[in-house]
Structure formats: C-alpha cells, structure tokens
Design a binder for these strands. Structure first.
Lengths: 165, 165
DNA sequence: AGACTTTGGTTGAGTGGTCAACCTTTAGCT
DNA sequence: AGCTAAAGGTTGACCACTCAACCAAAGTCT
C-alpha cells in the first residue's frame, strides 16, 4: 500500500470500537444469564429457538444452518452435542439422502419454552429497551445495509488488491 | 416466570438478529483479510494496534487489558502466544512487582505498521463507509448507552430474580 | 508488626468455532 | 448411460476464550 489510507477519525473510530465492545459484552452477559436460567449455552438456545418456531420442530440441517447463518460444520458439531444431551434428534431426510433433518426433542421443547421468556426479557433490558424507536430503525437500516454489502462481496472474493509489500 | 413477557415485535427482533449477524460476519471477514494481508489473527492485530499507539510500545498488562476490554486471563494467554512468535516481550514492572509490562517487539512493530493500513481500509469499506454521518452518531450514542448500562449492572449482579420454574 | 483482603497475573481444563479433508448423493452435461 | 461437478454433512486437528483455582505482591486495619 503506497498511498496513505484514510485513517478513521475520532467518531469513526469510536463507532467501530463501541460496536465491537458492545457485542462482546452483551453476548457474555446473555450467555451467563441463559446459563443461569436454563443451563443452556447461548448456541444451544439459538438452535432450539429456531427449531421451536417450525412446525413439528422439524427442519433440514441446511435450512437450520442458513437461518442461523452458521457454517455447516459448526452446526454439525453443535447438533451432535445437543443430540448427546437429548435436546434434539437427527433423522434421515426422505427427500434427499445426503441431507438430514433435525427434530426438536421433547426435552428440548420443554427447555426452550422455559428459557425463552427469560432470554427475551434480558435482551430487552440490556439492549432493546435502551433504544428509541427512531434509533431502532436506524440500526436495522444500517445492519441490513452492511449485511447486504457483505453478501455481495462474498462471492467476488479473489479480487483483493496487490497484497501488502 | 408467571406472567407472559413482552415478546419482541418484528422490528425489535430484526434489530437484534441483524445486530448479532452483522458482528459475526464482519469479524469473520476482517479476520480473513488481516490474515491474508499480514498473517495475523485479529486478536493479535488488536493487541499490536493498542501497543503501537503508546510511547515506546510499552504498557502494563492491566492497562492493555482494560483498553482492549479483555479479561486478564485472555490477555495472558494471548501475550504468551505472541511472545512465542516474537511479536511482543514481557518485562517486569519496576513500579509494581506483581504487575508486568508488555513491550512491542521490533517484529511486532514492523508487522502492525504493514498491516494497519490494510485493516483500516477493510473496516472502512465493509462498515464505516456504508454509514452516513448522522447514522454514525446514532450508533455511537446507542453503543455507549448500552455499554454504560452494562457497566452499571456489572457490579449489582446478584439481584437477579426468583429464577425460572 | 502481623493477619486479611485485594489486586495483578498465570495456568490448566473444558468448550466452542474454523478450516480442510473427506464421503456420499444429486445434478448437469454429452 | 456414464462422467464430472456440485451440494449436504461429518470428522479431526487446531486454536482461542472462559472459568475457576492458584500464587505472589500490595494495601489495609488494629
């Protein structure tokens, strides 16, 4: 990189830093709460939450993964662990022999139904309720813009530039 | 939890989901970029970045940690790994024998100076430049509000409520 | 001075996530 | 049909982060 880049000014730097920090600390706190309330780790909660909102708590691994925006291997590991605990079950997918279905087990349903109200309350208290409606709209707009941008670039990811040095 | 909680409405849910997703995908992308550009992992970059902005690249572990908002054990592990790579060095702290100082090693300085412009450019392209100045102010305000809130509650963290069930 | 607490830091165990390699099935092409 | 490529998942290795236990030095209180 020969020319000096545009460094971040004070506001930009602050926006970036706080963005990173807020996420980290919020997640840490929610993790501890959900663990205290239900014995789940956050990742388990998220899987159960998505599953429980589908008819019969049944969906293909891939749909589950794409909804969570998780990599397939991450999901696979997670599902294995949760299967060991009896929270979910794997079933063959009749429509595609490569694929597999993940089903919410009874224990999983009980757990999520008990945990969800608490979790929502914590998300509210530590995040949503601190934000005005206008700010909320701004957040959504910005986040979706960034996500769209990232999705766009996701494919065209060889055209980086000459590489440092 | 006897009474039904206030569930998240569509906008709130969206704000929360996109918030989580944006962070995850941005970090993933930045991690890959900084790795491709300089061979560093993001955590290493962050440590070097903070160190390089201090006189002589020297600061106490605790100051480093608080600036990064990292737990002490995380920092300790990270510094050890980076020391093994010759990016930083540990030195005794003359002012306090319990403490220790972390110094930016020459190799660390070269690395960060080469990596920083690229990193900044990526943060810009994938985040900052997608945000209008007014939105940026909103972001900062919201993030700092949430951080303040979290810091407040950090201490008083036994007064949870009756617990589920 | 002597005990008690607090602070700064390290360590090891356990866990979660990424990556790359692999296998199987499905889709595409001729 | 037959060959190749792509898609869905699994696995194992590796690494980073958290948590709890621990240690030594500083501060505090009497």
């Amino acid at each position: 990189m020969t020319a000096e880049p545009k460094w971040l000014d004070t506001r930009e730097d602050r926006a970036w830093r706080t963005f990173v920090n807020v996420h980290h600390e919020l997640m840490l706190r929610l993790q501890r709460h959900v663990m205290a309330d239900s014995g789940l780790v956050l990742a388990e909660y998220e899987v159960l939450a998505v599953l429980s909102q589908h008819p019969d708590g049944l969906m293909s691994a891939q749909e589950l993964g794409s909804q969570l925006r998780w990599e397939k291997s991450r999901l696979s590991h997670q599902v294995r662990r949760m299967q060991d605990q009896g929270l979910v079950a794997r079933e063959p997918n009749p429509a595609d022999a490569r694929s597999c279905m993940v089903r919410l087990a009874p224990k999983g349903r009980r757990t999520i139904e008990e945990a969800a109200p608490w979790h929502v309350q914590h998300v509210r208290r530590d995040f949503i309720d601190l934000i005005t409606p206008e700010e909320l709209e701004t957040l959504i707009a910005v986040n979706e813009r960034v996500l769209g941008h990232l999705a766009d670039r996701a494919g065209s990811e060889d055209s980086v530039q000459g590489k440092g040095k």
